[in-house]
Design a binder for these strands. Sequence first.
DNA 1: ATCCTTGCAAATGATTTGCAAGAGT
DNA 2: ACTCTTGCAAATCATTTGCAAGGAT
Lengths: 138, 138
Amino acid sequence: MINYNQLLNQSGLKATHQRIGVLEVLEDTGHSTIDEIYQRVREQHPAISLATVYNNVDIMLERDVLVEVPIAGAKSRYEIKKQDHIHLICQICGSVTDESIDLISQKDLTRIAQKDEFAIARSQINIYGICQSCQAAM
Amino acid sequence: MINYNQLLNQSGLKATHQRIGVLEVLEDTGHSTIDEIYQRVREQHPAISLATVYNNVDIMLERDVLVEVPIAGAKSRYEIKKQDHIHLICQICGSVTDESIDLISQKDLTRIAQKDEFAIARSQINIYGICQSCQAAM
DNA sequence: ATCCTTGCAAATGATTTGCAAGAGT
DNA sequence: ACTCTTGCAAATCATTTGCAAGGAT
């Protein structure tokens, strides 16, 4: 459990109920679209407006509190910034699962980027396929 | 140089000038947004409509002729489908460069996915950072 | 007390759709 | 000829913005 007040203040943002609500939803779901965040936060804060969710996600992206996870054929999802990791994205049910990038992969990425003298800020790996439970249901 | 007529017919699509125009632009640029495709195709086919570009990109995605490259903080780009590869995305100038996924990385991805019994269809690796020429300009 | 943030409503921008005319096989 | 595809315009959906009122430090 993270101290959201502190995280927001450190980032130069006021710790409003709306922002804490967004962070709590993302802590809980892992990755959500704007609309999912809006629906979930509304359960606790029925008066929150969609524009506020957009504004807050934007400003938290700028301040590196959140990260955008763009997904082919679907809306972007957002997650609380943490170590780079891999997303397994199910093409049937849309679920997103995290997996760690191990050391070998990290080294490979560095080596590949160095070939182009490219200064890496971060990497995003999406693997698309079919998750275990959707395979079982086929 | 690819035979676009054949590629389209194999995919059950008529080889219209508009579709060939889209493919030629993508062959030339590597990866473009919808709008870039529209502007470029217009140079050869001034009457093409933006809706036609949208429709054609959509149907070519469905038929696996094109692939969507979703990018954090920017519009998706589209490319002609080929072997999976890595995208180096410059956060300054927005350029996208391809790099091959070598065998070790491929094996890593397979191993990681197997942990979750996930059936891989394809993988998409985006590395965000600063390209060589933007570094030089700093 | 001050400045930042909110909710609302309106504005803008992106994408999709319906349909009659035109093009590919 | 037949069916698929196009361009246009309108409709829809997503996102951003302006602003007066309210909230956090």
